[in-house]
Each structure stands twice: as structure tokens, then as C-alpha cells.
């Protein structure tokens, strides 16, 4: 029973990692840019929601604040693409990585300036509620996190594989020029992908802030989520989620069964092992390049 409890809380954590990883993969899949600031996006989304909902700030009702903050993050994502990332058209991946790392610094700084550096929790309708399931006590937040993540992943998967816009995004990612010739509005598509990335980050942030607390340096868990994305395989949405879950589940079990000091190494050691033995992730979609 103990292990089951560990598993559930690990899954809930893993879902947050998975959602951030999903954001990475989403943007990577569609624009082939790697957004290292995704963790900071999540932190920002959480803080915007806190700023709208919590009584010491604006005190709006949660269900009203939710769409507003999602919308704000979407607009932010779109604007970032419009004014920063689009200028990087055709540059190497590495310079985009450096740009987004710098962006993360700036977001962290701005969030610290506005909301302070104290950890804060989102006041939400699910706080403190529990479900008893045959001797197993589950936090309502944990259940909500898992449910929301599953739904969101499913929706995104359908979006990418079935809808016209999703296919356009995939096409634009594989070859911008060819996609442009085929009538895909590449610029618009990329802007929308960044907006979507902002929304996913915001959802992750809200879940994270409801479960625990956020402070401006929370965005650094983006690195762990990045590890998750790589473990799952960049370029595969279900893979990203699976990677997140793997990292999330490994953590509590490692800290329970492995000596202290060694346990926090586990996710990164796994990452290195995956990179060495299966460089493109466990669920990769990479084929060999034809010159």
C-alpha cells in the first residue's frame, strides 16, 4: 500500500514534468526550436494565476481567473514568437537555445520583481480535499493533475494527427520552405504553436501551484522536465508524457530505497544512460538522414 501511495504521488509529479516536457516537444515538433524557457513559462503562468486568484492580490474567482491567465499566456507566447523567435529564422538550434535560456533569466527576474521571492500557493477550490479509495488516501489535487494531463495529452495528440492545422504544423516543422510552397502559412502556424506552448505551460503551472508552492526559481525544474522529454524522445508527444512519468515515479522510489545523496542523481543518471544507449529517446521517431 505504501508503494502504491508513492506511485500515485510520483505520477502526479510526473504529470507536471510531463506537461512541461509536452510544451518543449510541442514547440520543437512544430518549429524545431527548443524552448529552454518552458519551465519559466510554467512559473510565469502559475504566478499570473496566483496574481489573479489569491485574495492578497486581485481575488477573482478561480474559474474566471483560469481562462484569463490561459489567454494571457497564449498572447505572451504568440508575441514572443512574433518579436523574438521569428528573427531567428534559419539560425542554428544552438542560438535559439541560448536565446531562450536568456529569456528564462529575464522572466525569472521579472517574476521576482513583481511577485517577490517568497514561495506562494494557489488558492484553489480543490485545496485540502481528499478521496479515500479502499485504504488509499489521495489528495484531490493529485487526482486532478493526473486527469487534466491525460485529457490534455489526448487532445493534443488528436490535434496533431487529425486536424488540418496540426498537420500544417508538422509540415512546417519538417521543411519550412516546402510547407510554404504547399500553401501553409508558416509564420502564422509558428505563432500559434508558441501560443499553444504558452497555454500548456500555464496549465502545468496552475497544477503545480495548486499542488505545492511556486517561487521564481521554480522554473529550474524545467531542466528536469527537459530530461524527461529527452528520455521519452524529442518529437513524440506521448513519449514526452511517458518520460515525465518515468522521471516523476523514479524520484520518490529512489529517495525511499536508495541511500540519500545517491537518490537525486537517479533522473540524470537515467538521462545519461538513455542518451548514451538510445540517443534519440525511448520512443523516438528518428530515421536516418539521406544526403
Amino acid at each position: 500500500m505504501d508503494n502504491l501511495q508513492l506511485l500515485i504521488s510520483g505520477l502526479a509529479n510526473g504529470c507536471v514534468y510531463g506537461l512541461i516536457a509536452l510544451g518543449f516537444v510541442l514547440i520543437y515538433k512544430a518549429t524545431e526550436a527548443v524552448n529552454f524557457a518552458q519551465g519559466d513559462f510554467m512559473m510565469l503562468g502559475a504566478f499570473i494565476t496566483i496574481g489573479l486568484t489569491n485574495t492578497e492580490y486581485m481575488g477573482l474567482p478561480f474559474w474566471l481567473a483560469l481562462p484569463i491567465s490561459l489567454g494571457l499566456m497564449a498572447v505572451l507566447g504568440y508575441l514572443l514568437d512574433r518579436f523574438l523567435i521569428r528573427k531567428m529564422f534559419g539560425e542554428s538550434q544552438t542560438s535559439v537555445v541560448i536565446l531562450t535560456i536568456a529569456l528564462g533569466f529575464v522572466i525569472r527576474f521579472a517574476a521576482g520583481l513583481i511577485w517577490g521571492h517568497e514561495p506562494q500557493t494557489l488558492q484553489n477550490p480543490l485545496a485540502g480535499k481528499e478521496i479515500a479509495l479502499g485504504g488509499l488516501v489521495l489528495g484531490m489535487e493529485d487526482v486532478a493533475v493526473i486527469v487534466v494531463t491525460v485529457l490534455l495529452t489526448w487532445a493534443l495528440y488528436v490535434f496533431f494527427s487529425k486536424t488540418k492545422m496540426g498537420l500544417a504544423m508538422q509540415g512546417a516543422s519538417q521543411n519550412q520552405l516546402a510547407a510554404y510552397y504547399m500553401g501553409v502559412p508558416v509564420k502564422q502556424v509558428q505563432g500559434l504553436v508558441w501560443a499553444l506552448g504558452g497555454v500548456v505551460a500555464c496549465v502545468a503551472g496552475i497544477l503545480f501551484a495548486a499542488k505545492g508552492s511556486v517561487d521564481p526559481s521554480t522554473g529550474l525544474i524545467g531542466i528536469k522536465a527537459f530530461a524527461a522529454a529527452v528520455i521519452g524522445g524529442f518529437g513524440s508527444l506521448p513519449g514526452a508524457l511517458a518520460g515525465g512519468l518515468i522521471v516523476g515515479v523514479i524520484e520518490p522510489f529512489a529517495s525511499r530505497y536508495i541511500a540519500a545523496g545517491y537518490s537525486q542523481i537517479a533522473p540524470y543518471a537515467l538521462l545519461l544512460a538513455v542518451l548514451i544507449f538510445r540517443p534519440h529517446g525511448l520512443f523516438s521517431q528518428v530515421r536516418s538522414k539521406k544526403v
Binding site: 539560425e91 542560438s95 533569466f105
Partner: peptide, 22 residues
């Protein structure tokens, strides 16, 4: 003292360089 100011400014300088003077 503004915490994180150094990194904030640093990030902005970096973004400016990558955009305007790669």
C-alpha cells in the same frame, strides 16, 4: 538590493546581442 538584477540585465544584453549582433 534587487535580487536577480544581475541575471535579468545579463539576459537582456544577451537577447539584444543574439537578435541584433549574432
Amino acid at each position: 538590493a534587487i535580487p536577480g538584477l544581475e541575471f535579468g540585465i545579463f539576459g537582456m544584453i544577451l537577447i539584444a546581442f543574439i537578435l541584433f549582433e549574432p
